[in-house]
Amino acid sequence: MRTQRLRRRPPKPPISEVNVLPYIDVMLVLLVIFMVTAPILTQGVDVELPQVTSEPIQTEEDREPLVVSLDVQGRYYLEMGANSDEPLSLEAVIEQVARIKRQNPELPVLLRGDRRVAYGEVVILMSQLQAAGVTQVGLISQPPEDR
């Protein structure tokens, strides 16, 4: 009986390249997930906007406007950063807007007022914003629903 000798192959050299295809697949899946969930995660204050027909306000794409909101209970909100859902006093809002406008005078300021708020409250807010150095205020509204 013949004994067979097992031949040993010489060991393969280690592969020094990283296979990036699985990483690209994971990256694309994460990109799709973020694209789908980003619109859902928008923050804001629940305000019922007046419905009017108007032209959209033109803002620069790279500059997000500063939004001051006034809800039906008369609470003020400054929508920027993580604490945009915490109500502030009128004085605190005006102080912060003035500070931001001193740092960035070209930053657009938009006012979002609930349609059930008294007109006088909106006028007071606008006059206080003007006193804080805001020369132009855009009003946010919703397009009317088809009846």
Results as ranks from 00 to 15, higher is better:
N83R: 15
D85W: 03
I33P: 01
L139K: 11
L90Y: 00
I33Y: 04
A98G: 11
G74H: 00
D71L: 05
N19D: 12
M1L: 10
G120L: 13
D114G: 04
M126Y: 08
E79F: 03
L28I: 02
G120M: 12
S141D: 10
Q51N: 06
Y76V: 06
T59Y: 00
R7P: 02
V134P: 09
S84I: 05
V123F: 04
P87L: 00
Q58D: 12
R147S: 11
T59W: 02
E17N: 10
E121A: 14
R112N: 10
T135N: 15
R8F: 10
D146K: 14
Y77I: 06
I140W: 06
V29Q: 04
V52D: 07
R9S: 15
Q96W: 01
I94A: 09
A131E: 15
Q73W: 05
S54C: 11
L41F: 11
Q4H: 13
L110F: 12
P11V: 03
T59D: 07
S16H: 05
A38V: 06
V18R: 04
P56Y: 01
Q58T: 10
L90E: 14
V68A: 00
L30P: 02
R8H: 08
L28S: 00
P108D: 07
I33H: 01
I40V: 12
Y119W: 10
L49G: 02
E106I: 09
V134F: 09
P11N: 04
I57G: 08
P50K: 08
T59L: 12
L88W: 00
L88K: 08
L49C: 04
L90M: 11
P65S: 06
R63C: 04
V36C: 07
A82D: 14
S84T: 12
L28E: 01
N83P: 05
V137Q: 13
A38K: 11
L78K: 00
L139N: 11
L110Y: 07
Q136I: 11
R99V: 08
L66K: 01
R116N: 14
M126N: 12
V109A: 03
A131F: 08
P65Y: 07
N104T: 15
E86R: 11
Q96E: 10
V52E: 13
V29G: 06
P87Q: 01
L49Q: 00
F34R: 03
P144T: 04
V67S: 03
S16D: 07
L107S: 03
E55V: 06
A92V: 03
R8E: 11
R102V: 14
N104H: 14
R75N: 12
L21D: 09
E64M: 13
I94L: 10
P10H: 09
Q73D: 15
L66G: 04
P144L: 02
A38E: 10
R7S: 09
V47L: 03
